[in-house]
Structures are given as structure tokens and as C-alpha cells.
Simulated scan of single mutants.
Amino acid sequence: MIWVYLILAAIIATPLIIESTRKPMNDKARAAAPGQFAHLSQGVTHYQWYGPEGGPVAVCVHGLTTPSFVWQGIAKGLAHMGFRVLVYDLYGRGFSDRLRGAQDRAFFITQLNDLLADQGVEDDITLIGYSMGGSIATVFAAQKPNRIHELILLAPAGMCTLTKGLLGFAARTPVIGTWLMLELYPAILRAGLKAERDRPTSVAGINDLQDAELNWRGFIPAVRASIAGILSDDLQEDHALLHHEDVPVLAIFGSEDNVIPLSSRDILKRWNSDAHTAVIEGAGHGLPYSHTVDALEAINGFMQQSD
């Protein structure tokens, strides 16, 4: 009988031990990172600038599992259009600090506020968000509409529930939820990456870069905290406020996106009838890097129209 308990204990302990042995994000890990680092109120944030100094500022917010490298193609395209582009890693991802605790709207707004202040970025910002970053960009813009020149959302979260099923249970449930995320999430993420592997990309090695995030301690807990936090928010009031404040909004969706369904476009239009939308045919959830040219064309057309 004791062998049963020993086996059960080993099963329970294994994902916790694996997490504890993952690489820590520290100064040694950051030595070869591109860009720079800001010491903000919550911790260290990795960031990088693209484009000409003095150009209008565009700030890009990445998604749940893809750090700032996801913006390489978009950022270079915006820089070619004359923008000064700021990309950064959300806490728990890339080269930024791994922080414990809730990752709700206040958490992410604080990081972005701190970074903009640190970099001397003031108003008239083109704010761009991808996936979960679309939620972060939306709530930031709704809180500070006077600072936003335009809001651009790529495959944005916030219009549909993403916290159902096993991941939702794992995110909301103490103790057992932590174990489930550590045990099951690597396989879930890798299955999603496998489905996207054959798509074209403007970011070299994008799938391997995303997979490598699993090697860092604190990444999976950060994903869990975000699912329970910002990704559990209904953003109807935020989008309604943006409509009331006349903030120009463009939302771009992929016709084959199995994470953010195309029905989100219709929900957004109900919440903000002035929002512009575009659909990229054949694009999945990775549209910023798989359909970079199409996304940039939609962005450029929107900017010309709104100006």
C-alpha cells in the first residue's frame, strides 16, 4: 500500500519540481537580450525601440504567451512608415521580471504607465495590442482616452470568454489549479504551436522562440494569473467609453482564428458602432507574424482614413 502513496506523491511532486528547476530570469539570462531594461515600480521590464527618433510614437502590447519578439515584422513596417515604435515584454514573459500575484487590468496598466513615464512618452500615442495585449490596450485607452491618438487591435481578446474548460478551471481553482497548469499547459501550448508551424512568418524561428518560454521559471504561473485576471474581464464598458470619447479604433481579425472567433467582430460593433474592422482571409491567431503585410496594409489604410 505504501507504494501507492509513494507513486501518488511522485506524480503530485513532479510538475512542481520541474517548475522549481526551470531557469530563472536574472541578469545572467538578460546579458544577450536585445534592447534595454527599465527598473519600474513593480520590477524590471525589457523594452526595445524601432524607427526614427522624433516620429509619432506607437506602443505595441503583446499577448498571453508571445513576448515582444512577436512584433518584429509589424514594428519594422511601422518604422518604415515613420513611426517611433516601442515594444516591451509583459511581466512573466520574455526578459521581464517574473512577478507573483494577480495579473488583472490594474497590474498591466501600472506596468505600461510606468514604462511610458520612464521613457518620457506623453500623449498622442498610437496604441496597438495583440490578443491579450488587445485587452490591455483597450483598458489602458479607456482609462486615459485623452492620451490616445488611435487604438489598433489585432486578434483582440475581450469580446468573448476565453476562460472556459480546463484552463478556466485551472486558473480559478486554488492549489489543484496550479498543479494542473504546470502539468498540462506545456502540452497545450505546444499543440497550438504545432498547428501554426507551417504558416509563413515575419519573425524567424517564431515557434521555437515561443516554445522556449516554457523553459523559464514563472512563465506558466504568469499565464495562469493572466487567464484568471485580465482575460476574465468583460470589456463592454471600456469599448463603450472609447466610443463615447471618439477614440478611433481599428480591430483586425483572422478568418481562421480558432482562439479569437470571428464573431468577436460583431460583438465589438455592437459595443462601439464607430469601430473599424478588417478581416484577413486565411489568417489564424498568429496574424501579426503570419500575415504581417496584410495587417500593415489594414493599419495604413485606417490611419490615412482617420487622419
Rank of each mutant, 00 (worst) to 15 (best):
I2W: 13
W3P: 01
Y5P: 01
I11R: 01
I12P: 03
R22E: 01
R22Q: 08
H39Q: 15
H46Y: 08
G54T: 07
G54K: 09
P56G: 09
A58F: 12
V59F: 12
T65L: 00
T65K: 00
G77L: 05
G82Q: 09
V85Q: 12
V87A: 12
R93Q: 07
A102Q: 10
Q103Y: 13
Q119T: 11
G120V: 09
D124H: 13
G134A: 04
R147Y: 02
R147Q: 15
L153W: 08
L153H: 10
A155D: 04
P156W: 00
P156G: 03
L162T: 06
G165K: 05
G165T: 07
F169C: 01
I188Y: 11
P200I: 08
S202P: 07
A204I: 05
D208W: 03
L209T: 01
Q210S: 00
A212D: 13
A212R: 13
G218N: 07
I227S: 01
D234Q: 11
Q236W: 02
V247Q: 08
P248T: 03
I260C: 09
R265V: 07
L268W: 12
E281Q: 13
E281F: 10
E281V: 13
H285G: 08
L287K: 05
T292E: 05
I299K: 08
I299E: 07
N300C: 04
S306T: 15
